[in-house]
Write a protein that binds this DNA or RNA. Structure first.
Length: 468
RNA sequence: GGCGCUAUCGUCUAGGGGUUAGGACGGAUGGUUCUCAGCCAUCAAACCAGGGUUCGAUUCCCUGUAGCGCUACCA
């Protein structure tokens, strides 16, 4: 959701001014990046109708557009900075850095690199690196004075240089960090406007320092407010469905989602709340963005989506239904699980309804069914919660085999008989004690839906009151 | 802890030195109606606090408070 939000504003600015909207994949963290997550970004942006002019899949004048394929470029640029003494080699081990952090914490000092390796003579550092000693490249921030950086919406923002860390630019695995890769690519790809989330604002002095180090003209920076959970923390999957996939599955329309997102921190001059992407582009100006972090409010999204839905002709609605909820693909996933268990076509609707429903209710009866004999609602609540937040959260590959291994292993760790946990999960995920095989069912239901339902079920157990 | 950003109804926001501070979601009430939804109408609901500046501040400035973010060889 956050990516879509930022992409929308970037897209609108580019379209409004006849510019180019560039999609670059920042996959420099090998742990977190995968082909699957990249595919999800493509699919989500396409679904929303935010087409890019340059990108990994379509190429462009500044290819490649995947940072993982540009390593040589970053290494050259890092070397350039080192030769200009705008950066330096650092040989400190992770252990030393950790110890340093601990020490600083204990002494209530400011955190940050202490500059040990910065004192190394360049020739000495070069010798050690050439000898194969593991190292990173760090930014040499000035130790005194101020950096005054400009944000389009906030104006000049001042930072004491002493507060700004000597950021790692190139990791010991040879990959760049965001800071280096971003600055180098933005320059090379001729990016005029860096519109990104507010969480980057505190890194801006580092980035500006990098532009200076290279002798480059920095682009315009504009930091968007962060989307928030209802409790006002930065939006997260813990507290909100943030996957575009979830909303798509639930049958929200891309136009409605785009419209809603455009209302976050921005408003039409005439305060009109319903408008198309095209109208948004026409009217859009960065200057109208307001800075209070907007809470993502599903109920208002629902209202807006209802407006869009009711405007459709029955034919159009049918097409939507066929494209998403009742797609052949979806139905074909469900039918094999249901076929043996029904005798007539009409029985399908009763038996399979939970596959298509959104939230389930957990009345007193359902709560009783979730709690095994000899266990308390509290225990069951806690177990379901940990299952959702830890075990299932970490499960990237959502298939029946992986699910089964995961949940069985989890039951073992918790010391619960499999059957007891399975029943709790079954009732939580389907609302019934009888269902098709659990893991196939969970697989078809999808990660977002399952996690949402289990979380709700756990809540119901905790409060003891029926969740609606 | 340090640094930075932000602050108008519960939520999204408009506005801006003089306004009955406007709209939308949600809520309440009523109308339409066989029911529900929808639609329509009405109501309740806000300028974080304290100091300045000013004839006058919700608006400008300062301080405080609160929220958020950053403080990684994550982005």
């Amino acid at each position: 959701m956050g990516t879509a939000y930022v992409a929308l504003f970037n897209y609108a600015l580019a379209r409004k001014h006849g510019g180019r909207f560039v999609l670059r994949i920042e996959d420099t963290d090998r742990e977190r990046s995968s082909a699957a997550s990249e595919a999800m970004i493509f699919e989500a942006l396409r679904w929303l109708g935010l087409a890019w002019d340059e990108g990994p899949d379509i190429g462009g004048p500044h290819a490649p557009y995947r940072q993982s394929e540009r390593s040589a470029i970053y290494r050259e640029h890092a070397a350039q900075l080192v030769s200009r003494e705008a950066a330096y080699l650092c040989f400190c081990t992770r252990e030393r850095l950790e110890a340093l952090r601990e020490q600083q914490k204990a002494a209530k000092q400011n955190f940050g690199y202490d500059g040990l390796c910065r004192a190394l003579a360049p020739a000495e550092a070069a010798r050690r690196a050439a000898a194969g000693e593991a190292h990173v490249v760090r930014l040499a921030m000035p130790r005194s004075g101020q950096s005054v950086v400009r944000d389009l919406l906030r104006g000049d923002v001042a930072f004491d240089n002493a507060q700004v860390d000597d950021q790692v630019l190139l990791k010991s695995d040879g990959f760049p960090t965001y800071h280096l890769a971003n600055v180098v690519d933005d320059h090379l790809m001729e990016i005029s406007h860096v519109i990104r989330a507010e969480e980057w604002l505190s890194s801006l002095p580092k980035h500006v320092r990098l532009y200076e180090g290279f002798g480059w003209q920095p682009p315009v920076f504009c930091h968007l407010p962060l989307l928030r959970n209802a409790d006002r923390s930065k939006i997260s999957k813990r507290k909100n469905p943030v996957s575009l996939n979830f909303y798509r599955r639930a049958g929200y329309f891309p136009e409605a989602l785009v419209n809603y997102l455009a209302l976050m921190g921005w408003a039409m001059p005439d305060e009109r709340e319903e408008f198309t992407l095209e109208e948004f582009i026409q009217t859009f100006t960065l200057e109208r963005i307001s800075l209070g972090g907007p809470v993502f409010d599903v109920s208002k999204l629902g209202w807006l989506n209802g407006k869009y839905l009711r405007r459709l002709t029955p034919q159009e609605l049918l097409a939507r239904l066929r494209a998403e909820s009742f797609s052949d693909e979806r139905l074909l996933a469900v039918l094999p699980l249901v076929q043996e268990r029904i005798d007539t076509l009409e029985a399908f609707f009763d038996y399979a309804s939970f596959f298509f429903a959104g939230e389930l209710g957990y009345d007193a009866q359902a709560q009783k069914e979730m709690v095994p004999k000899g266990r308390t609602p509290g225990e069951t609540h806690k177990l379901l919660r940990v299952l959702v937040e830890e075990e299932l959260d970490a499960l990237v590959d959502w298939r029946k085999e992986t699910l089964e291994a995961s949940v069985r292993g989890f039951a073992d760790k918790a010391g619960w008989p499999h059957a007891e946990l399975f029943m709790a999960v079954r009732v939580a995920a389907t609302g019934r004690t009888a269902s098709p095989p659990l893991f196939e069912t969970l697989a078809v239901l999808g990660k977002e839906t399952v996690r949402r339902r289990l979380r709700r079920a756990a809540e119901a157990l905790k409060s003891g009151a029926p969740a609606k």
